[in-house]
Design a protein around this nucleic acid. Structure first.
Length: 113
DNA sequence: TTGCTGACCGACG
DNA sequence: CCGTCGGCCAGCA
């Protein structure tokens, strides 16, 4: 599969930022988009994540949630429970598909990078 | 080319 | 609180 240079660059940036998320922390699609300069649109981040499973090394997509801290993409993992399981294994509490203390655990690439 | 969809977000009523 | 719409861009029929 080949993508445009634009798309490849976008993908690379998204994956790079996602991999930089510290263990036990989370971020949002909007934050990544904002960090990249809203290039490509917010929905493209999710679209990129849909392809991340074939990327190497593994992209911690489970650390990326929507702006409310909801695990909107959990159905795109092997099983719907996997995303929550991975987060809890890192010490993140998840209740009803929602990250607890989201504001506290939120990792903003703009602020950190 | 058109129209619909999508792991989003913000604004409106 | 909930539904709807517009904007963003790529993929597909």
């Amino acid at each position: 599969m080949k993508y445009n240079q634009k798309t490849e660059n976008f993908f690379a940036d998204v994956y790079e930022v996602t991999r930089l998320i510290p263990r036990g922390r989370v971020t949002s699609y909007g934050a990544i988009v904002n960090y990249l300069g809203t290039k490509g649109g917010a929905r493209m981040v999710g679209w990129a994540m849909n392809n991340c499973h074939r990327e190497v090394p593994e992209v911690p997509a489970h650390r990326v949630v929507n702006r409310d801290g909801l695990l909107t993409g959990k159905h795109h993992f092997g099983t719907p429970e996997m995303m929550q399981q991975l987060l809890e294994s890192e010490g993140i509490k998840v209740i009803e598909d929602k990250v607890q203390d989201f504001q506290k655990l939120f990792w903003n690439p703009i602020d950190e990078l």
